[in-house]
Measured scan of single mutants.
Amino acid sequence: MSIQHFRVALIPFFAAFCLPVFAHPETLVKVKDAEDQLGARVGYIELDLNSGKILESFRPEERFPMMSTFKVLLCGAVLSRVDAGQEQLGRRIHYSQNDLVEYSPVTEKHLTDGMTVRELCSAAITMSDNTAANLLLTTIGGPKELTAFLHNMGDHVTRLDRWEPELNEAIPNDERDTTMPAAMATTLRKLLTGELLTLASRQQLIDWMEADKVAGPLLRSALPAGWFIADKSGAGERGSRGIIAALGPDGKPSRIVVIYTTGSQATMDERNRQIAEIGASLIKHW
């Protein structure tokens, strides 16, 4: 067993022997301040990774656009098919120029040779490549099948209805392509620590998230040296922004954090800054 596999296998073990965790309302004060600064709703939840206990939450059962955070769930569904012998990570998928959609920095470079399922998941999570996500959605049967996968996990809230990039439209009061912070946090925890996926697939999923290259201005910008984070960000229309993450000190994750916002007129930089400040408060009061 590799060191990384050992780390993920012992996530519940280490967490069980940690000192009790206590909620700190100071972080919620910052979440509410972010709402004021952005002029928009902000949803927040913080779960203990081992027990699933909610440590703090704000608007945990209000719907927010998922945006690209759905790509972690998508690759979880792909990995479940791999575990069941219905898919192979090494299978190569070929596609054409007509398949390319807006923001496809990886797939646009491989029109000639195609990409493997493993490479597509890596591109979808680490670079948020939209064509990679659409190609992977095709392998599982489309958005409705991802929703069905989530329902089978016990998540009857999260739903995907459309493809990239239309799913980022974020129309107010439109339930399409949305989740709730509580539902997303619980589902992410199941994917990373539950028995739904094999140990190898859980490790692969967290490795992809740990290698995320496009979430630097968010929670990662607030992390002290030595902290662990595996995350996936999302951005959408109407001032929408979000991030889902597993993080913790001492090089291992111990909490799940989900943050979503929508309806702001603020710039992307300002949305990023507010999420980073929430992260800084979380870490300060850990």
Rank of each mutant, 00 (worst) to 15 (best):
L136R: 00
V72F: 03
D174R: 03
G251I: 07
L19P: 10
C18L: 06
A40F: 04
D99V: 09
H285A: 09
I3S: 10
A77C: 14
M127T: 13
T131R: 02
T126Y: 04
K71S: 00
T178K: 02
E237A: 15
S57L: 09
F149S: 07
S2W: 09
N98S: 14
E87N: 05
P105F: 05
K53C: 08
P65N: 04
H110Y: 11
T27Q: 06
L10A: 13
E62A: 09
A40W: 06
L218G: 04
P253N: 08
L219P: 04
C121P: 00
W227N: 01
G85D: 10
A23D: 05
S281G: 08
T179Q: 00
E102A: 13
D83P: 02
F14M: 11
E102D: 15
L136W: 00
L219E: 03
F14T: 11
G236T: 05
R162H: 10
A9Q: 08
G90N: 13
W208N: 03
D33E: 12
M66T: 06
M184W: 01
M127H: 08
F22W: 14
Y260V: 07
N152A: 14
H24C: 08
L111Q: 10
D231I: 04
Q4C: 11
G234E: 01
R92S: 10
D269M: 11
Q265G: 15
R41F: 08
V117N: 04
R159E: 06
A185K: 00
L10V: 12
I54Y: 09
K232G: 00
E237W: 10
G216S: 09
N130I: 01
N130F: 00
T69W: 00
K252I: 12
G248M: 01
I283T: 09
K53N: 15
S80G: 11
A40I: 04
L196V: 14
I3G: 05
M209N: 00
F6H: 08
H24I: 10
W208G: 02
L38I: 10
P105T: 06
R241W: 02
V42Y: 06
M67E: 05
V214Q: 07
E119H: 09
K190R: 14
E237R: 13
F22P: 05
R255A: 04
P165D: 06
A222V: 13
A235V: 05
G263I: 04
R81N: 12
A34R: 02
M127G: 06
E61L: 12
G251K: 14
V78T: 07
R41A: 10
A225K: 15
E62N: 08
L223Q: 05
L146W: 05
R238W: 10
T131K: 02
S201R: 06
T261K: 03
T267H: 11
R59W: 04
M66L: 12
E102T: 12
E237Q: 14
R91F: 06
P20Y: 03
I171T: 14
K232Y: 00
D174Y: 03
D99G: 06
A40L: 05
F13I: 11
A84R: 12
L19E: 08
K144Y: 13
M180G: 11
M184P: 00
N134R: 04
T193F: 11
A230N: 01
R81E: 07
D207P: 02
G242T: 02
K71N: 00
D48L: 04
P181A: 07
R81K: 14
D33Q: 15
A266F: 08
P143F: 03
V214F: 05
H110T: 06
I278H: 00
T198I: 06
P249R: 09
H151R: 14
G85F: 06
M66E: 02
D48W: 03
V21G: 08
C75E: 01
P65I: 03
T27Y: 02
P60T: 12
Q204P: 02
D83W: 02
I244R: 00
L199Q: 14
I256M: 07
H24S: 14
R63M: 07
P217Y: 08
N152T: 14
A123V: 07
R202C: 09
G76W: 05
R271F: 04
N50L: 12
Q204E: 14
T116M: 06
C75L: 05
L38A: 07
V82Q: 06
Y103C: 05
A15G: 15
R189H: 13
G226R: 10
A266Y: 08
P172D: 13
T178D: 02
D250W: 10
D99K: 08
K232P: 00
L19H: 15
A132V: 00
E56G: 13
V29Q: 15
F64L: 02
A200K: 13
R238P: 09
Q97G: 13
P105S: 05
P217C: 07
V8F: 15
M209I: 02
L150F: 09
T193A: 15
E87I: 11
L47A: 08
A230M: 07
H5E: 09
R59M: 04
L196Y: 15
A84K: 11
T193M: 14
L55K: 08
A16E: 05
L47N: 03
T147A: 07
N173L: 15
E237I: 10
L100W: 05
V78F: 04
A9I: 12
D207K: 12
L136A: 06
T179H: 00
D269W: 10
R159M: 07
E237L: 13
L247A: 05
S264A: 09
N168P: 02
R255M: 05
Q97D: 13
D231K: 04
V72Y: 01
A124K: 00
D48E: 12
P217L: 09
I11F: 11
D212Y: 03
I283K: 05
A170C: 13
E119Y: 03
D269F: 12
G76E: 01
G242I: 00
I54N: 06
G85V: 06
P60S: 13
A40D: 05
G85P: 01
K190A: 13
Y103K: 02
R220E: 03
T198V: 07
L247E: 02
L111I: 13
H110L: 08
N168R: 03
M180Q: 15
A15P: 07
E46S: 15
I229G: 02
I244S: 03
L120T: 04
E62F: 07
G154V: 04
T107N: 03
I243Q: 03
H156A: 15
A9G: 11
